[in-house]
Nucleic acid binder design. Sequence first.
DNA 1: GTAAAACCTCAAGTAAACTTGAGGTCAAGA
DNA 2: TCTTGACCTCAAGTTTACTTGAGGTTTTAC
Lengths: 150, 150
Amino acid sequence: MTKEKILWSVGQVSERTGVAVSTLHYYEKEGLISSRRNAGNQRRYEPNVLRRISVIKTAQTLGVSLREIKNVFQALPNNRTPTTSDWKKLSSNWRKSLQQRIEQLERLRDQLDDCIGCGCLSIKKCNLRNPEDIVAKDGPGPVLLKQGKR
Amino acid sequence: MTKEKILWSVGQVSERTGVAVSTLHYYEKEGLISSRRNAGNQRRYEPNVLRRISVIKTAQTLGVSLREIKNVFQALPNNRTPTTSDWKKLSSNWRKSLQQRIEQLERLRDQLDDCIGCGCLSIKKCNLRNPEDIVAKDGPGPVLLKQGKR
DNA sequence: GTAAAACCTCAAGTAAACTTGAGGTCAAGA
DNA sequence: TCTTGACCTCAAGTTTACTTGAGGTTTTAC
């Protein structure tokens, strides 16, 4: 009993996932997904590529860069096609950073509430802009939230 | 009694806000902030530029593009330096989209929880990847969350 | 068997948000 | 005064995540 493998063409994967063919090429070039080729050199994907693409897109929604996603993939034992339990770990980790992001935004929201309340956004008082309660003196010193590059 | 205006040099604004001098130049070129010049053609900023920069940085944290921020600024009557009540409106609006973003991420988080629970991320079952409860058929059709460009 | 649709590669282009560099001017302190 | 640090302009470079295009091959449908 041979296991019949259903393979997908790039166009099928594209339609199935909503991700452009050119993007699939790009992901492959970047080492995020892989494919086999048929006799005519056309890409043929195993179904699990859909998993990978889902994870990529989900992670991007969370603000994870492709580079980081690739690292996560590569950290999987033997860089094998991830198993269910690998996915569990991934989901768990991303759940954590998602939670952190949510909390960060909630803090920001609450600070915005303060600002709306006080109508301030003033340099010396506003929490949002002066999160460490640093009060402006004549001398300088950074006052905004430190923010990574976006 | 003349109103003494304290003006800031670009270096001072940079240190005060944590935003690089080159970025301040860039924001000015893009029409997000403005400055006067002293006799020697050096930039001199009115204190309210700090407000603008705060708003820019805050909005960016919320995922608002510079273009959008500029539009908001320009929508202010006479493109004047925003007043306290202008800021209230801005804060309110941004508070709304912040809330939406939080809710979106919370949904994502809860769906991730489901995935962790079921260990799936499977094509046919996973909520996260199949948010509309579209069950995979043999025929294609996009399955991922629609996502704007990032 | 043939035409159209789908696929291939590789290079170059795009957009946002900045940064870097070259070449030169201005200002403040010893 | 002189030197050093802060400033100036303008052009070009950088990064991420893709898209577009040219020129050619393969597959599929009639």
